[in-house]
Amino acid sequence: MRLLRLRVNGDVVPVAAPSHWTLLEVLRYRLGLTGSKQGCDKGDCGACTVLLDKKPVLSCLTLAALAEGHEVTTIEGLTPAHLRAGGRGADPIQDAFDRCGALQCGFCQPGMMLSARALLAKNPRPTRPEIQAALAGNLCRCTGYTQILEAVELAVAESGGAAVQPADGRRGARGAS
């Protein structure tokens, strides 16, 4: 058992965990941050994606002790950070996913949204192929990805203050904030 000092979503949290525990296990079962999901056990699905110093990593393959010294961001951290920065409502990526219908079962989406966050931190105006490539390590079984891509594009457009063209009248609760 080790006593770890992890920096998670801006806080330093002391937590005891055995050496062989992964970051995912510590987040979910020690810290109660269950927004990071477990889908495949071993790095094949991306549901457990968290950010380590703004880079997307798979927490199911990251030993918890090796996250020490890095800033860990989980899905629970996005909206509080947005509010701290003076924003209103939910983090714009989370909000866009909701407005575009990208959250069917929602299980893969925390990881997906963090991958999208990492992309936008690096490249604030990505093209659709760039978005697809950045999300290609996150499997979604519900959506066929279309509404996810639309959600990221919506967040990108709005972050630049651009008016968003609704794809067509039937799609996306884009006006319904």
Binding site: S19, H20, D41, L63, E68
Partner: peptide
């Protein structure tokens, strides 16, 4: 979840 067997970790 599928778990890693127990081991000690060193971070030199």
């Amino acid at each position: 979840m599928l778990r890693a067997p127990k081991f000690e970790l060193a971070t030199p």
